[in-house]
Design a protein around this nucleic acid. Structure first.
Lengths: 332, 332
DNA sequence: CTGAAAGCGCTAACAC
DNA sequence: GTGTTAGCGCTTTCAG
């Protein structure tokens, strides 16, 4: 790696002159400037980033983004959102924990040593103490949780409301026996969604029936099969996520029932790739994930600049209605 | 932000003593060490990353990863692979160009100014000159292309072979009228895939029929519909990617034909999420994307350390056979 | 116009 | 044990 000094020596000027030319500051004779530029290019000179940010007052913002799995569409979209608001003004250091909690904690703990100005923690199951500790050193953005602490801002999704409106939609479309294929309650979100479902059911005078199902397609399939086999009366299903809904659809079809005529279905997350490719297309509660990423970054910047206005940002999901829940129509 | 000097002043020792304590080097009396540690913690002192890497001989590796769209499963997997081999030893700066060529070029051009030690360019349509120029400054990894240049390594996928074996598989399963729904030939990969298809067909004495289709589900659907409407004889389809295959399947089903009995189908990319959720499940040519990411990073490290052994790494895709191509069986 | 010199915050020899 | 000092490579006054 060449340095200013090398260029200076080769052109018989001082390093400060070289610096000026390379930064387009101060005035230098056209002749020298030419020469310097030429030599710098020949050498392939690149200013040392660290030296530069040391010497300058202003530094380029660097934010750490920690996700459990970049391969999961949710986190990919989140990342995209973050990236969008960073634009040209900030670098983002992506750290994937591979769903390994130990690795995740290490990443979070070490982040501040890498010249990171703030950190966004994608996993909503973070250890509270860890967040509190890290926030002593750098600003933090978290999801689905709240902290009293000064240096933390929260992005939350109104899962309750999303579940409520999905259930309501099924009822309004004529379902009288809506069941909920829920998550296991180690996750806060699945509890919230179950609550939303329950509220909508009770409000209409129906008895809620919640089945602890899980989070993937296979779980949805197996559980739905079991439910149908048991002879439960079902004409509507609200699923905790789209994958579970996919599985449930498969089971329903296997029983020779028509979606949505016999059983209407709504998912959660609105992974367009899935929802639109399946037949009939799946209605789902849409999370504005990318936008959540954008806001995360925006609030983080404010926090870094000590110019925070908002400490908690709530997103309301909305229902995207497709074929799977329109009971009026029969799918071919 | 506090600095060593602040801690030193507060504890009445020199900054070098503080440095020693904080880095666990040299010997310092237990009493002072305690005091120093305590004060440092109270202050929330974090060493300045840039100053540190300047003063130290060894610096932490930082690599830039440029992708057109992190939301695309291909690039998400690639990123995961890269991250995996980075492990704890390197930082990765993720840059999404949002499929904006101008932005992408800017990102690539500027990368070297951000203390990046090497760069991985995910987009296989990069401008050659740009790659050559950037490689003068930092090591580069590219995909699907080759450069004479010293400082560039290539990761390529044997698309030809993948297409060949997919087509061969259809033929061996009894198809005599296999068509190819290909891409538009602005993409090199689609040309390679078409060539592989053609070779397999000719080898078996069949006339290849290639339809320039496109890259998404809708294109696959529309084009396949047209082909069937025209009354073409078709009993096998090799699609340029999984999305096109999805669309084609939809069209085939609409015509009341059975997959795979009447028409067998194979896709490309093997996006498991899609291939396994559809019914019948879709056979597809698998690209070891994550592994490609891992190798990219590995080779980049070697390049950075001037210890390069390989200049070109070829991955061979393999066919994953699911239900959509097993002509023997009829799907229900 | 041009260069000497101070300093960004930290580390690592090397004295004391 | 502890402090002094010389850089790391660059930017930026401030003289000349």
């Amino acid at each position: 790696m060449f340095k200013l000094k090398d260029v200076a020596n080769l052109t018989n000027v001082s390093i400060s002159t070289v610096s000026k030319v390379l930064n387009g500051k101060g005035r230098v004779s056209e002749k020298k400037r030419r020469e310097i530029l030429k030599v710098a290019r020949q050498l392939g000179y690149t200013p040392n980033y660290h030296a530069r940010t040391m010497a300058r007052r202003s530094r380029i913002l660097t934010i750490g983004l920690i996700v459990p799995d970049i391969t999961n569409p949710f986190f990919a979209k989140l990342t995209k959102g973050v990236e969008k608001t960073c634009g040209e003004d900030a670098l983002i250091i992506l750290m994937d924990s591979f769903r390994n909690l130990e690795r995740e904690e290490k990443l979070i703990k070490n982040a501040r040593f890498f010249g990171i100005d703030g950190i966004i923690i994608g996993n909503s199951r973070v250890n509270d103490e860890l967040v509190l500790e890290v926030s002593k050193y750098i600003p933090v953005v978290v999801f689905d949780k709240d902290y009293e602490c000064e240096n933390v801002v929260s992005i939350v999704l109104d899962n309750y409301h999303g579940a409520y409106s999905a259930t309501k939609h099924l009822i309004e479309n004529g379902c009288t026996h809506v069941v909920h294929l829920g998550g296991t309650h180690e996750l806060f979100v699945s509890l919230q969604r179950a609550n939303g479902y329950e509220a909508a059911m009770r409000e209409s005078g129906f008895q809620p029936r919640i089945f602890a199902t899980g989070y993937d397609e296979n779980k949805g399939y197996e559980n739905m099969k079991k439910i149908l086999k048991q002879g439960e009366t079902v004409d509507g299903i609200f699923c905790m996520n789209d994958l579970v809904a996919m599985g449930a659809m498969k089971a329903v079809k296997e029983f020779g029932l028509n979606i949505p005529k016999d059983i209407a279905i709504v998912g959660f997350d609105d992974d367009e790739n899935l929802c639109e490719i399946i037949s009939p297309s799946l209605s789902s509660v849409h999370q504005p994930v990318e936008e959540m990423g954008q806001i995360s970054a925006k609030l983080l910047f404010e926090l870094i600049k000590k110019d925070l206005k908002i400490k908690r940002y709530v997103f309301s999901p909305h229902l995207v209605i497709r074929q799977s829940s329109l009971k009026g129509r029969e799918s071919q």
